[in-house]
Design a protein around this nucleic acid. Structure first.
Length: 759
DNA sequence: CTGCTCGGCCTTTTT
DNA sequence: GGCCGAGCAG
């Protein structure tokens, strides 16, 4: 659940905005004009304070249009918008992330900035492809540095507002010099494709505000009040935007907590918050130190850890909450037992009536660790949602269809052209495409336009030539329907491109799943259109690309939430499990070289710990499987920093457990695990625990016991019959044929159905 | 020239 | 476990 949801007072509708606030909170809400810095410790009710402040300003007569509120995720933006509207009905304030704001400004002021407003937003995959092309055209063999690393370098440069030329001046090591060699080419390639990467969405507006005084003045006057949440995680570009929007009207209110700065690696600069008073000498500073979220035990533990950071202003969180359960450190033998142990504990809790599934969250440092958990959840029939990296829109089939759509909106889009042109197969191979690209570049035209002139490209003949001509005709035809609502257009793409036919004809199970997924893409677009019919295909695509991981998180459903520590920022849960608190994972091994990086890892740990309201469990294993290898894992240094009164439970996974694979191994070899932690027992000699056989079955318990043939009732479409089921866990899809609406595919976990007749 | 398959390589965190 | 590139068959 989001921060503050637990406080009933947030449900005040149109009532007194101030009555239930502390003196400090009230001061922050009522602060009039001028810069304001709110240093808000974890759990101090900051979201609530910003929301109330916006509502307060509105009640004071400030026009909604002159308020700009910046949040860290689109989800947080939506929530704030709704809460403000509940407090001050009829007032829609502009709440957005920095990136969405940037995209909006770029499109709105496209003419003044001389850009094409139909630009495509490139995600990291797209970015890396462009980097790769740039590396190739610069003749740099990408053996030394991966496109990802180079792309990261370019990203950092842009976040620091360095132009290719400026960056060149600062490049004094081999890596930066390599980055410098492709940075300019990279930008050119983006512009040719009429594409923006994530960083451009900040870089270009920041530059425009810096260099175009007229535009700056306009926007400063338009957004007289600017509020920024999570200010400790702003980078230089975001800082520039904030500052330039707050020169003539210095009503800039920033909220943050230096102890929760966890994005230094992507350019965020803790100095922005530390130096706020220097940037705005008239700033008022309000500190919110009282914590309303956690028990004393949890706060003491979190405080003990974070106080080991040297680069830090000392501060202590206090709470009136009770002492609560002791913080637990759970030690497991291996990752499998850890996953099972955590899931079993959660299940026990729920079955004992102590908590609901939705009260639990499991955090981890890296996405890869979610996999073992997923199996355990499925095996024990515990409902869960992984707030994850590999999301719905990242699946191949959806990316393919989205490539068509992007190319429709922006015919210059090179990456999307290359993705869509031979999917389904049209007999256009690598060589023909290289020739087409060369032709397009020589004639300074888009790839799609070049495909339209394929007759002029003498070295493309036969199948490839026909395929390209067909593809160009297809896109021309589809483009004439661009004004259709997004879902209609997607259907048209699926039919006319042959993509649907390809999946239907294939007969592979996997392709049936894919078909269900692209059908669901249609549903998603239809929903998008239903929410606001004024938004078109371009808006749909933008929303998908700019959506953050937590945006897809369903906080209302009764399931355990699983996510990375980064995604957990800003959330709170009664019971929290932190997985794999081990040296090399938290702190991550890539951070071990520098003390300042370790401090960021410690802040990350702190963020995770302070999400917990009632109970906090820190888990680690003796053995960690990684890349198919089992390695001995050392407990994290952060565990040593905990206060003495934490409860340490060893071999926590043995409770309620069948004999584990490692127990069997131990019995067989007659060795005590702890005594042989050295090289003569390698994973290949049998140490690697055999995974307990886990079949991807449907979780039992929850209402997912539909089967093909069952008759169900849907609240919107009425009675229907289940015609197909596919996938499992969160990915489980159910296909239902309705009398009136025809066949629809749903996510089984999400769809609300009433069983009419079992099969 | 195209398209499929197999094997080697890498793996933090994200808008 | 997943992606890319090399190698091979049509």
């Amino acid at each position: 659940m989001a921060e503050g949801v637990g406080m009933s007072s947030d449900l005040v509708s149109n009532g007194d905005l101030l009555a239930d606030l502390t003196d400090e909170q009230r001061a922050a809400v009522m602060h009039g004009e001028g810069p304001l810095l709110i240093l808000a410790g974890a759990g101090s009710g900051k979201t609530r304070v910003i929301t109330r402040r916006v509502a307060y300003l509105l009640r004071q007569g400030v026009r909604p249009g002159s308020i700009l509120a910046i949040t860290f995720t689109n989800k947080a933006a939506g929530e704030m918008r709704n809460r403000v509207e509940a407090l001050v009905p009829g007032n829609r304030v502009f709440v957005s992330t920095f990136h969405s704001l940037g995209a909006r400004l770029l499109r709105q002021y496209a003419d003044r900035l001389e850009i094409d407003r139909n630009f495509t937003i490139y995600d990291m995959d797209d970015r890396n492809k462009i980097v790769k092309e740039a590396l190739e055209s610069a003749g740099i063999d990408n053996v030394r540095f991966t496109p990802e690393r180079i792309g990261g370098g370019i990203s950092k440069a842009k976040n620091q507002l360095l132009t290719p030329r400026q960056y060149e001046q600062t490049a004094n090591d081999f890596f930066s010099q390599t980055v410098s060699k492709v940075y300019g080419t990279y930008q050119k390639r983006l512009r040719v494709a009429n594409a923006m990467d994530f960083d451009d969405l900040l870089y270009l507006p920041a530059m425009a505000l810096k260099l175009n005084e007229e535009l700056r003045r306009d926007l400063d006057a338009r957004f007289k009040y600017v509020l920024i949440d999570e200010y400790q995680d702003t980078n230089s570009a975001q800082y520039e935007i904030a500052k330039r929007l707050s020169q003539d009207y210095q009503n800039l209110c920033v909220v943050g907590d230096p102890d929760q700065s966890i994005y230094k690696w992507r350019g965020s600069d803790i100095k922005n918050i530390m130096d706020f008073e220097r940037d705005f000498p008239s700033a008022r500073v309000i500190t919110l130190a009282r914590n309303y979220r956690s028990t004393k035990a949890i706060l003491a533990a979190a405080d003990a850890v974070i106080s080991h950071n040297k680069q830090r202003k000392k501060k202590t969180l206090v709470t009136d909450n009770g002492q609560g359960d002791p913080v637990r450190v759970l030690t497991f033998d291996n990752g499998l037992e850890e996953a099972e142990g955590v899931v079993m504990r959660i299940k026990d809790d729920v079955q004992a009536g102590k908590a609901r599934y939705r009260d639990h969250a499991v955090f981890m440092r890296i996405n890869a660790l979610t996999r073992s958990l997923e199996s355990a959840f499925v095996k024990h029939g515990v409902p869960f949602q992984i707030v994850k990296g590999l999301a719905f829109f990242d699946r191949k089939e959806n990316k393919d269809v989205l490539a068509y759509l992007r190319l429709l909106v922006n015919p210059q889009d090179t990456i999307s052209f290359l993705r869509a042109v031979n999917e389904p197969v049209r007999g256009i191979g690598k060589v023909s495409l290289e020739r087409l690209v060369r032709y397009a570049e020589e004639n300074e035209m888009g790839y799609l336009a070049a495909a339209g002139q394929v007759a002029k490209i003498t070295d493309i003949r036969g199948k490839a030539a026909t395929g390209l001509r067909d593809f160009h005709r297809l896109m021309t035809d589809l483009r004439s329907h661009l004004e259709l609502p997004p879902h209609e257009l997607i259907k048209l793409v699926l039919d006319k491109s042959g993509y649907r036919k390809m999946l239907v004809d294939s007969g592979e199970d996997e392709d049936a799943d894919r078909l269900a997924n692209v059908e669901e893409l249609v549903t998603a677009a239809a929903q998008f259109h239903a929410e606001d019919a004024t938004r078109g295909l371009g808006d749909f695509l933008e929303q998908i690309t700019l959506a953050s991981d937590v945006d897809s998180w369903d906080e209302a459903a009764d399931h355990v939430s699983v996510m990375t520590l980064h995604a957990a920022k800003g959330l709170e849960f009664p019971i929290v499990y932190l997985l794999a608190v081990e040296h090399g994972l938290l702190p991550h091994e890539r951070s071990l070289a520098k003390e300042e990086d370790i401090e960021e890892e410690r802040r990350l740990c702190f963020v995770g710990m302070t999400r917990a309201m009632k109970q906090l469990n820190l888990c680690h294993s003796r053995l960690r499987e990684f890349r198919g290898q089992a390695l001995y894992a050392v407990p994290s240094m952060f565990l040593d920093e905990l206060p003495a009164d934490v409860e340490r439970i060893d071999r926590a996974g043995r409770r309620n457990q069948p004999r584990s694979a490692i127990d069997e191994w131990r019995a067989k070899t007659n060795l005590a695990l702890t005594g042989v932690a050295d090289k003569n027992v390698t994973p290949t000699t049998g140490l690697k625990p055999k995974p307990v056989e886990i079949k991807p079955t449907i979780p039992d318990g929850v209402d997912t016991d539909y089967s093909v043939g069952a008759v169900v009732q849907h609240e919107e479409y009425g009675i229907g019959q289940v015609t197909n089921m596919s996938g499992f866990g969160a990915l489980r899809r159910i296909k239902i044929r309705f009398a009136a609406a025809g066949e629809k595919t749903f996510v089984a976990d999400k769809v609300k159905l009433k069983m009419v007749r079992r099969k």
